[in-house]
Amino acid sequence: MADLAWKSQGRTRRSTRTVRVAVSTVSTVTVAAVALAVLLVPPLVQLDQQAVDLSMKLRPPSLAHPFGTDDVGRDLLLRCVYGLRVSLLVGLVAALAATVIGTVVGAAAAVSGGWTDRALMRLVDTFSSVPHLLLGIFVVAMFRPGVWPVIVSVALTHWLSTARIVRSEVLSLRSRPYIDAAISGGATRWRVAARHLLPGVLPQAGLAAVLMVPHAMWHESALSFLGLGLPTHQASLGNLVQSARGSLLAGDWWPTLFPGLFLIIPTLAVAGLAGAWRERLNPRRRSELML
C-alpha cells in the first residue's frame, strides 16, 4: 500500500491542536518547576529566609536579589519560594480533604435517595448560600491562627461543588443497563458501588480535586491577607502580600508583584493541565479506531 497517496482528513484543525499541545506542555513544565522548587530549594539551599539585613531593606530587583528585598531586607525570592511551599501544602491537604468529604456526601446522597438525598442536598444548598469567605472566616475565628484551622476552613467550604458533581455522576451511571446487569449477576450494593460506580466517578472527582488546589491556595491567601490565616511570621503568599501593602503605597512594586505572580502562574498552569486531562477523559477521543 506504500504506493498510495495518503491524505489527511482529520476534522481537528492543525492550529487548534498545536495550541492545545503547547498549553499542556507549558502547564506541565510549570507545574513540574513549581513542584521541584518547593521540594528541593528548602533542603538544598542553605540560606535563611528569615535573615534580616536592615541595610538592604526595600531594594529593587538586582542580581543578588532577583525579586528585591522586603522592608527588613529579607530576600524576596527565597521568601516567595517558602511562601509558595506553605500555600501549596495548605492547598493540597485542604483540596484532598474537601474531595473526600464531597465524594462521600455526594455518593451517599445518590445511592440512598429519598429523604437522605433531600436532606443532604439541602445541607449543600444552605452551605452554598453563605459566601465562602465569610464561612471560612467564621471557622478560623473559632481557633487560634495556624495551619490546621486554615485547612479545616478551606475544606469545609469547598466540598460542596464536589458533592454535587459526584451525586449527579452517580445518578447518571446508576441508570445504565450495565448496573442492571451487575445486579442480575448477583452483585451486592457494595460491590456495585466499589466496582462499577466509584471507578466511573473518580476521574471526575480527581479533576475537581486538582482544580480545587489553586482555589484553596487563593482562599488561604485571602484569609492570611485579612490577618485571619497563618501567623504573620510564617511566610505564606497571602502574608507576603499583606505585609507589603504599606510599601506599595510608597511606590515599591516588587514586594507585592512577585508573591502575586507566584499565586497566579501555578493557578493558570493547573487549569491548563486539568483542561488537557479532561480532554483525555472524553471516551470518544479515547477510542482511536471507529468500528
Binding site: A181, G186, A187, R195
Partner: peptide, 28 residues
C-alpha cells in the same frame, strides 16, 4: 439471566471482556 438490546450501554466501559464475563462469578 438477562441480555439487553444495546451492548454499548450494557457493558462497563472499564472492564476487559474477560473481566466482564467473569464478573458475576466474582460477585457470588
Amino acid at each position: 439471566g438477562v441480555v439487553f438490546q444495546q451492548p454499548r450501554l450494557s457493558a462497563d466501559p472499564r472492564l476487559r471482556l474477560r473481566e466482564l464475563i467473569a464478573e458475576p462469578l466474582r460477585a457470588v
